[in-house]
Write a protein that binds this DNA or RNA. Structure first.
Lengths: 218, 218
DNA sequence: ACCCAAACGTAACGGTAATTACAGTAGTCT
DNA sequence: AGACTACTGTAATTACCGTTACGTTTGGGT
């Protein structure tokens, strides 16, 4: 690991050839994400991506094959990091109302980040052209948070705090309550950014309705 | 009004010159809607629109000024017909559970029509480029149904069937419960079309949670 | 029947942007 | 060092598409 001796012969990483190409690739992907998120797929400009990434057009084409390949690689990278990204700060064994509030705020604040909204817009817009991609993305994103919340709810059920027959379904409903209103508005009004207070109020409403109504499903 | 005497001098309509131009215009708008919904704004092709509408490119440019103008006119037309489109078959004085179910199914079946989903996709994708448009559309669509449901809820409150402090807010929450899950999936999985049974089940869940939980807000 | 404006068809213009070709450079491995 | 590979820079190629120009046609009002 010494700076002068970075021989790749005995690197423990799986990749046989790490280093330069990887750096190029990472820079390309980063620039591609920026440009695609800003302008959308069709309006994104390959030259602009190279301008920002700093490599050369030829290398970009050599590595990704073309615009479509670059786009797919960029999405793949994003999908891979989603599981990490979407880790909910779990509320462990906190009481129900407090736990739901914490999880809800954590989730909703993330959700309304401009970067996330732009990503959502891009996926929705390209869902027809890249069906596998949109599906993979939504599935991963959904499942991660749903499982996490379901786990917490099961803990609360075990603690006798609430009666829920189907924790996954209940989790899904809670996220619906959290997300729907703001997602609708933010997707259609890109300039609108909810204030912290709005987010908290939204979470508060969702918690109340959820706790009050979820047992009706049994 | 006799067929042989259709003099425009004494026509009661506001338009001084009705007829040919209007027909052209209507045909253009219809074709434009198809093509824009199929391919999105950027990928839509003016020549393709003319091919489907049957007029000539020159006329199209004379009437709408260009791609942008055509797009805006198409959206405007759609926004105008939304109020009609979104009229909920109101449940009048039906009991709460039955009324919510009827309104919910009516709304949700409409919502998952491919045409509506494609429209939503288009609006989301272009929300940055045409902000006023996306906003006008979502506002109109939202308000129409929200007011209608709020009216019904107020009727039920008056009938003593439920206690709701803020009918508009409650209506909004009900639509969130209805829509969120399916909207998420259908927007990102264009090929997925929910079955009639899935829609009914979704409505049933929403009704249960809503009735059970909405009074918690007071 | 005549006239005018609107509609038509077609082709040309202009610009943009994806993709490829090619000649030169730099890094790495033996 | 030498060779092989990957990277760079730039320019050409190619295709597409929005937009405009222009000469012709047509339909309706007098």
């Amino acid at each position: 690991m010494s700076p002068s001796d970075s021989g790749p012969a005995d690197t423990p990483t799986v990749e046989p050839e790490a280093g330069r190409a990887e750096l190029r690739r990472a820079a390309f992907l980063k620039a591609a994400r920026e440009v695609f998120l800003e302008h959308g797929y069709e309006a994104a400009n390959m030259a602009e991506i190279v301008r920002r990434a700093g490599g050369s057009l030829s290398t970009l084409y050599a590595q990704f094959g073309g615009k479509k390949g670059l786009f797919e690689a960029m999405i793949d990278a994003r999908v891979s990091e989603i599981t990490t990204q979407m880790q909910l700060e779990l509320a462990a064994h906190a009481p129900l109302r407090e736990g739901l509030t914490r999880i809800g705020e954590d989730f909703l604040f993330r959700q309304v980040q401009p970067e996330n909204l732009n990503f959502f817009r891009l996926m929705v817009a390209q869902a027809k052209k890249f069906p596998e991609m949109a599906e993979a993305w939504s599935r991963r994103a959904q499942e991660a948070v749903r499982r996490a919340l379901a786990g917490y709810l099961e803990d609360r059920v075990a603690a006798g705090e609430i009666r829920i027959a189907n924790a996954e379904q209940a989790a899904s409903i809670y996220f619906d309550l959290l997300r729907s209103r703001m997602q609708f508005r933010t997707l259609l009004m890109p300039s609108y950014v909810p204030t912290e207070q709005e987010v908290r109020e939204q979470v508060e409403r969702a918690v109340k309705v959820f706790i009050g109504g979820i047992e009706s499903l049994n």
